[in-house]
Design a binder for these strands. Structure first.
Lengths: 78, 78, 78, 78
DNA sequence: ATTTTAGGAGTGCAAC
DNA sequence: GTTGCACTCCTAAAAT
């Protein structure tokens, strides 16, 4: 590798590193919100579950929930 | 490292490798079951979900489900 | 779902559950080997690293290692 | 749950969602850098490897690398 | 008790 | 299109 390509590589690596730092900061912020929520009595696990559900399109979500109920019934999980 | 410790290490490594092969075989078997289930019309994703639910103690499961309903209602996810 | 399909589903689920138990047993065995290795002075993390390397085809491994060296040099990681 | 606690919960959830969007944006940016690097001939896998190495303290990294060499030699991985 | 680390599952993307 | 790969998340273990 020439010095030129070395520099190009280094620049790319450094961009990745900067972005990863930012990302880490935001991940920490998210953890903080969950910690804060827990401190006032909410259950982070349930919160994560509803965050996931809210990401879905309502119709898809309902469809999925209905199907799950079918499977649960078939196995006596009521 | 002496030849002796080399051998001891090698034996440990080989035990791990054998066990990992066995484990891989079983993982493949599980995938086969899901494939087979899918072929006759079941949805592997739903199956995984109920497998998870069945792992829980019934009381815990019901408790969890009730709590989730509470959170969903609070957020209008009905 | 009819009772028939319910039974078919149940059988598939139970096969998965049995296989998962076996798999869990083997995973535990693997952990035991690492624990035992650690007790006689080996570092499980290094062991995992070499297990990973031994999984590769020797030529691929050497190729990969050489390429990694190139990248490390380009970034002054020597 | 009262309407008040509902609102408090909703606000927490919405903060999480906003942060997750930001995080997703940054993750995408990182992927873009790797894509760009690949387009000019670099191997993203190697890049990820060096990013990981650069995260370590130099002394720790060298110590780890030396130890790994010891394990490799003990197992004939040269 | 808290923080880090590894293993596993699920998701989405890319290559073929 | 489909198979594999990689990234994320989460649970559980480990160490401090």
């Amino acid at each position: 590798m020439t010095a030129n390509t070395d520099d190009r590589l280094r620049l790319l690596i450094e961009r990745v590193e900067r972005l990863e730092e930012e990302k880490k900061g935001i991940s920490d912020d998210i953890l903080d919100v969950y910690r804060e929520a827990k401190a006032v009595g909410y259950d982070p696990k349930m919160m994560r579950a509803v965050v996931k559900l809210r990401k879905m399109k309502p119709d898809d979500r309902r469809q999925m929930e209905m199907e799950l109920e079918t499977y649960k019934s078939a196995l006596g999980l009521d």
